[in-house]
Amino acid sequence: MARLPNQTEQLSLDTFVRGLWEENPVFVMLLGMCPVLAVTNSTMNAIAMGLATTFVLVASSTLVSLIRKLIPKQVRIASYIVIIATFVTVVDYAIQAISLELYNALGAFIQLIVANCVILGRAEAYASKQRLHTTLVNSLGMGAGFTLALLSLGTVRELLGSGTLLGYPVMPENFEPWVVMILPPGGFFVLGVWLLLFAWLKQRRERRLPQQEAASHAS
């Protein structure tokens, strides 16, 4: 099951699902924390940020995989950065064209996708070594996992911090919003709770594994 870093991977369902759960960029690998904490104060921001990052991730990983044999080892990081920066600029203009309001809400964090280590990490650790189709599927999975993680923070923070979901009021009339949740500390609180949950799930699985093995040996 162990995957050697330099081995070419065969395409399977796991190539996609790994990014969602087992190697979730936020909850398991703890990468790209800056946008995770900064723009998740509403569901809409989380969705927009997740989609923008996914686009850059998929586009840059695909391109890196496509030309991976042409890039000399010494200048690979420089090449990745130029490729990533290009797609970030594309996204930046696209969001301005779609909605200025959204662009203002996301602020500098669109440009900062360049520095998102999930993307550079994928290019270096995966796309530069794997074939085109596996890279495409894997980066789509990672992007979906990143978006999912942003959403899990964004919905909780908007629900508790503003009493709304996607801008629509969903809490009862007498609900007093927990303002702290849409302020920066709220990001850390919610992220902490999610990490706790993931750590607990992992621990539980590890505890169960020896028991299952023992059970299968007995039978």
Partner: peptide
Amino acid sequence: MVRTLGAIAMLSGLLVVLV
């Protein structure tokens, strides 16, 4: 190296200008 970087930069520039 220069050729690769130059080609990538040129392609990037083209894409950015188009968008």
